[in-house]
Nucleic acid binder design. Sequence first.
DNA 1: GGACCTATCT
DNA 2: GAGATAGGTC
Length: 435
Amino acid sequence: MASYLRVMRKLHVLLVDHDLDCLISTTKKLELCSYKVTYVELASTALSLLSSGQPHFDLVMVNINSPDMQGYKLLQHAVNVDIPVIVMSIDDNAFLAMGALKKGALLFIKKPVTMDMLKCLWQHVVRDKMRIQKENDRIMGMAATNNHSKSGVEFRGEVEEENNIIVGNNNYKGKKKKRARKSLINGVDEECESEPQLINNKVKRKECIQWTQLLHRKFMDAVEQLGEGRCFPKEILELMDVPGLTRMQVSSHLQKFRNDNWRAPEERKSKQNNAPAASTDTNTSGQSKPRRFGSMPCLKKRRETHEDSEVHTENDEMPNDGYESITIEPIIMNSNQQYHEQLVSGPNNSRHGANSSSNPRFPYDDFFNFPENIDCLFHNFSGMQQGFGIGMNMNESSDPEQNSPLPSVKTRSQWSSETSNFASNSSETRGLEIE
DNA sequence: GGACCTATCT
DNA sequence: GAGATAGGTC
């Protein structure tokens, strides 16, 4: 028992309850259990205490019905800074409890709080700390421990749990479970850059990258180099050679691009501020172009559209191989800040600006530190005029898109079916170059 | 089982 | 509406 007390004494609890009687009595009980207690009436007060970072708290206990309506905000903040939160309420309400747990609460307890409950609190805190430590270890040692963890020893419990699910449901074919299991076993996701982080057993949605004009240009360059019929996410990703960028992200962008659903940040901004910008959904006659499922927008058209919206420089007149040296950095957006803190003024203003602190860095941000001069990224560009010959239709066509000297981006199946007549001599459908 | 693709979600 | 994710298909 003495050893328990030693642990309990070390725990600093921030108690938040607008019900003064409860506040006082719970404080007394906590102190009787040897916890160090700081108590405040309002969640907003607690929030500013937590925000200041001083003093450090090991546990927050909050009456979620705080009259200043900041109870959930406090919960969210504490969860974000990895402080376990115990939510209290006078109501015995399952929805309330579920809501709190979904937001990351460690426990939901109905008031009044008893001594027995409080005596056990330290165990929850310790367990939570261990979980966080484990997560951190896993992230830090991801690469190093990859081989070890494949043995399944490190996450045995979870693996067994997953195995039980699989054994119990042999018909399950979904990839969500498979991926989750794989990440538990390996400690990494399918692509380590896109590892979903588990926060309080919730899969935290990965921070968004922003496809800036410059990043998109790299994408386009890759597409152009690959040519028609070879524009697959993996190939594009490899050609782009952007550290930290994942195949899924490329795939997602490719989808948006193919469906003509992507607009450069600059274009979005101008569209918001001004009259409707020239939409790529309309043809020259101003008619809305019916969306052909799987149809690919013409690259030339896209290039023109996007370059029109670019901030032009004195190098605008330069030929293709005259791209100025630029630094491309994907802008990482916190999902909450997404679309609200668009760093549309370009990468140089993004995370290096005075307000960079308002845009927390994505854990893998360092992957995105590019060399100042990335001329090398365009090393193939000067030879691209010839490269464009790959897979393009040089003949005039009744379809305006077909008149582009640039290849269009087609799906594998689309391209495959279109070229099947020509490719009858070859069983290979992927990577086939059309002369 | 990896990669692609599309629908759906956030 | 952009980008991430789920899930079906090859």
